[in-house]
Design a protein around this nucleic acid. Structure first.
Length: 183
DNA sequence: ACGATGATGAAC
DNA sequence: TTCATCATCGTA
């Protein structure tokens, strides 16, 4: 099984292109000497300042600054007084866009499934993700990166749908099928 | 169906 | 400074 770290160019595409391509890739979290592997199974794209579902729709603020970084950084924010949301920043610098990682499967190095992470809040809790990762690079330096293990998800199993929890965005943006998931 | 729980941003 | 809101989740 060929395992390689995803290259930087991958992150310079539009979020809506990256989101489906992340399905089947492996999120690697290093905590101390331990590594946790998560097969990504659900993502959502947030793209540009016009996207009214995106935090960037109200311009640059202290919270969403990371979204304006170059693709290949993390955007981590706190919601509902309890949960940390993990997002992968996309595209070139100063173009705010990101992919929210919503669900995954904890696997071992042989792809044996150990645990299901059924939402962005539980995923971040399991991987010990908090504001310390905000604006950090997607690389070993931050202890959180993405690998391609050559897993090919059959296109039959890849679906798209409306994004979750963004009904405030108005019909045009709320109905966009920018959520991608397996099965 | 609902409450927990606190940062955020906009209004005042 | 106040206040409604929020890219959620576990319990009921």
């Amino acid at each position: 099984m060929a395992k390689k770290v995803v290259g930087k160019n991958f992150y310079l595409q539009p979020a809506s292109r990256i989101a489906p391509k992340l399905l089947g890739k492996i999120l690697v979290r290093k905590i101390g000497k331990k590594k946790i592997f998560v097969l990504i199974t659900e993502t959502e794209a947030y793209d540009g300042t016009n996207d009214r579902a995106s935090h960037a729709s109200r311009g640059r603020t202290k919270r969403n600054e990371a979204m304006f970084d170059e693709g290949g950084h993390w955007y981590v924010y706190f919601v509902y007084g309890m949960y940390w949301m993990l997002n992968l920043v996309c595209s070139k610098k100063n173009y705010p866009s990101a992919v929210l990682i919503r669900k995954g499967l904890v696997v071992d190095k042989n792809l044996e499934v150990l645990e299901e992470l059924e939402g962005p809040g539980v995923l971040s809790k399991k991987l010990k993700i908090d504001r310390k990762l905000n604006t950090r690079p997607v690389s070993g330096k931050s202890g959180l990166w993405v690998e391609d293990w050559g897993i090919k998800i059959p296109s039959k199993l890849v679906h798209s749908g409306k994004r979750i929890g963004i009904d405030y965005a108005g019909e045009f943006w709320a109905k966009k099928r920018w959520r991608f998931f397996i099965d």
